[in-house]
Design a protein around this nucleic acid. Structure first.
Lengths: 205, 205
DNA sequence: GCAAGAATCGAACGACCGTTTAATTATCTC
DNA sequence: GAGATAATTAAACGGTCGTTCGATTCTTGC
């Protein structure tokens, strides 16, 4: 039952954002009385904490798997692998960007959610920055760009399309599901590797 | 008085997002009774419509000024100019990304706000796509990348940092105000022009 | 089969929100 | 200066929200 409530909350968070939907709606989705949320999670605060904890655990595991993979630092397309990691994580948890965006907009950060948010950003995000800096030292990434801004740009290139897809996806023919993810990976990789300008040596390839 | 209410609403929207703050809070910021909002705007719906109309007018004007500038299509750094346009617009209206993100997350789009949102995206956004396609035809931008995805990526590179700056800005030393904007412009331009990989011919410059 | 405990529910509570209304104050017109 | 109109307010209304509570149903160990 606890599980069914979490799934309903995630589904609704993916569809319309978590902050905008009430506990009665979540409970109805799980075909259960709203009192069950208080029973299992102690209240709304406990439910969002449980959602965060789950998201943090999944994202951390994905990041760890990526960074600890023995061959990742020797590969040529480390950047592409990083992009694929981002997009795969967001495809697996499509509710995550909207949930984060909701909390990002909410004011009066409670100690609990700010702690979890700090974990989420400082953990995986700082690990990414560390990896980017190592790639710079190894001479595979340009050294004249700040690694922290690299991390923000990579994240933005991968996350932003997920945020606007529900709004302008149809008008722009962005597609959905696997097709959307594949096009996004290919495109982000193109930009990060080569930029957008016409270049003689690329055309000559 | 109408003006003071709009300014208070924009200030609060920039600080904490529009959806999360109540009419009583906006009215208190303007040192006025909450009933004045109903008096001048007819209700919350009217207030957000007035905010949108103002944002749409400003952004449209900026976009038009850019696209109609006689020399823009002949310049070498059109892409850099485009980035600068984005960042300048967002710096001038820092409440805009958060307001848009709020509406993006709200469910049950009312006809009024969906109309305004459609204007905002289809107008300036499609103009951008048109310009990018023209640059492709002119041979200045790569032709093997979809122009619509280019537009999304450029927008993401410029908008995403504004969204996360209030959250991780301190931890990442992103700075604020003009310094933040300048670093963002320079960095986005670097990525879009050259990508992130180390390239022999750039190092040889 | 039957107590005991967990699980679940419907209904109600208090707080907050956007809105309305009736009354009061300010401003302008002649 | 008086009367009409505009501007502004405090208070109350109805609705929704998260939460609580007492009662009811289900499960389980014996």
């Amino acid at each position: 039952m606890r599980e069914r409530l979490l799934e309903a909350a995630m589904a609704l968070a993916a569809e319309q954002g978590f902050e905008t939907c009430g506990l009665r709606e979540i409970a109805a989705r799980a075909r259960v009385s709203p009192a069950m949320i208080a029973y299992y999670f102690g209240g709304r605060e406990g439910l969002v904490e449980a959602l965060y904890a789950r998201a943090f655990e999944r994202v951390s595991r994905r990041t760890r798997d990526f960074l600890e993979r023995p061959d990742f630092s020797q590969r040529e397309d480390g950047l592409g692998t990083l992009v694929r990691l981002y997009v795969a994580a967001l495809t697996a948890e499509p509710w995550l960007p909207r949930l984060i965006a909701s909390e990002l907009l909410a004011h009066g950060a409670s100690p609990l959610r700010s702690r979890l948010f700090g974990d989420l950003t400082r953990g995986p995000l700082m690990a990414m920055i560390g990896w980017l800096e190592a790639e710079q030292r190894a001479g595979r990434l340009r050294g004249d760009v700040d690694a922290r801004q690299m991390a923000i740009s990579v994240a933005g290139l991968c996350i932003f399309p997920f945020l606007i897809q529900p709004i302008v996806g149809d008008a722009l023919g962005m597609g959905t599901g696997a097709a959307f993810a594949e096009a996004l990976v290919a495109h982000a990789e193109q930009i990060l590797v080569d930029g957008l300008l016409v270049r003689a040596e690329r055309d000559a390839r």
